[in-house]
């Protein structure tokens, strides 16, 4: 039995719902460490970055589902909704920690940052674009929107580009982890451009 069919038969047995719980464990754990003063010297910044990086990780996993199915025959589509919703939750937590714990609800300054600094504007735009996707993630919405649902959810590509630039701008100097994530964004988004020719070549073969 090939690797892909082994994975696929395992996928059939493992439901998607535990992913919602497992996926939130990092956030809960990080919050616990912060609330009990175990996140080092600058706990708010540490937690803020931690949540942002987990959002990026789940976003990359979400983007990986289609290429894995196309190229490796591994079908993880059943988990994609949970992965996408985890992206939304982590981006929302990331924003709330920035607004409440970091900016301490200094609204004038927060609004100033959101409207004037491209770095923060990009992150904010990504969160706003995630809202309609989260709101239409239920079966009822998928049925109701039909083809429009697919069109709407192409927004994830725009969100990914915003997220990648936000990640690129986040630090004075990029570290190895940032380089890896940015390379994955390029590969996974680039695949969408190359997808049709690749699939045609596969069908012809």
């Amino acid at each position: 039995m090939s690797v892909s069919s082994t994975v696929n038969s395992a996928v059939r047995k493992i439901p998607a719902w535990p992913l919602y719980i497992l996926g939130l464990i990092p956030a809960v754990w990080g919050f616990y460490l912060g609330a009990t003063n175990q996140l080092g010297t600058d706990p708010v910044k540490t937690f803020e970055i931690f949540l942002g990086l987990w959002a990026i990780r789940f976003l990359l996993l979400t983007l990986a589902v289609t290429p894995l199915r196309d190229l490796a025959g591994v079908n993880l589509i059943k988990y994609r909704r949970a992965l996408g919703l985890l992206v939304f939750w982590y981006v929302l937590f990331h924003f709330l920690v920035w607004l409440i714990l970091d900016q301490q609800l200094m609204m004038a300054q927060a609004i100033d940052d959101i409207t004037k600094r491209p770095f923060i504007m990009l992150g904010m735009a990504a969160l706003i674009l995630l809202i309609p996707l989260a709101l239409t993630s239920f079966n009822f919405a998928i049925r109701k929107l039909r083809k429009n649902w697919n069109k709407l959810h192409k927004l994830i590509y725009a969100i990914s580009i915003l997220a990648a630039i936000h990640l690129f701008m986040a630090t004075k100097v990029l570290d190895a982890e940032q380089y890896i994530y940015l390379a994955l964004f390029v590969v996974l988004l680039g695949y969408r451009i190359a997808r049709e020719p690749i699939l045609q070549a596969k069908r012809a073969a």
């Binding site: 609330a35 600058d42 706990p43 708010v44 714990l101 200094m106 300054q109 600094r117 770095f119």
Partner: peptide
């Protein structure tokens, strides 16, 4: 004079108050 990526109007004072009640 803001940094292009963030405001310089306020600052986080390190080592005060931990997670909540951090001193901005």
């Amino acid at each position: 004079v803001p940094h292009p990526r963030w405001s310089q109007a306020t600052e986080r004072r390190i080592g005060t108050g931990g997670f909540f009640g951090a001193d901005r």
